[in-house]
Amino acid sequence: MKNAWWKILTVVLLLYVLIAGFLNEVPHLPILNESIRNTYFHVPMWFGMIILLGVSVVYAIKYLRTPTLRNDIISMEAAQIGLLFGVLGMITGMGWARITWGEYWSNDPKQNASAIGLLMYFAYFVLRGSFVDHQQRARISAVYNIFAYAALIPLLFILPRLTDSLHPGNGGNPGFGTYDMDSNMRKVFYPAVIGWTLLGIWILNVKSRFEILRQKLYENV
């Protein structure tokens, strides 16, 4: 129970985000209106994805330095959950885009970039699946993981800035200060980012522990 404080924090934060996110006052901006509440659900998904994919890369690097089963499994599971967050971010974004921009897909540079990013990580799992030998699979997919992350970062952070995006707060620099958020929204937004990310790390924790146990069990059978 001593190490469970962050799990309790996750539950509390997410409950708070769900309740406050739907009930608190939000600024009524043209076009966005009430849909601005999607900031609490859509945006944290991308934060979670970047952080989890970052974890995945860190463990891939760790694997190349010290090749252990644990490093490989955490790297793989983190990529999987990062991908899940990416898909959820994509779905929440597309639903929102349908009512604000009029189309599910409107050729927005950020939409395109994130779709390409998801393709990269789907390819990562196809690559993993095409090896029989465990060590070779772990090593080569770690190499690809690092390579893909290095290609993903310019894709997500640099290219959308060269062209105008339809996203709120864009048209200039999509930094934080330009988001049309008042202090009321920030009170929910920051807990939402922390809460969703912690949830991802929680899932990662459980899944990788389970996977390590499973691998050990099969090895002994």
């Binding site: 990269m120 390819a123 290609a151």
Partner: peptide, 27 residues
């Protein structure tokens, strides 16, 4: 080149070359 190095290690390197390479090359 790097992608082909990765794909060459796997069994179905033809397909892998395309699916690993395309997303990286799109930007």
């Amino acid at each position: 080149t790097m992608v082909s190095g990765i794909a060459a290690k796997a069994s179905n390197s033809g397909t892998l070359m395309a699916i690993l390479g395309f997303p990286i090359i799109i930007p």
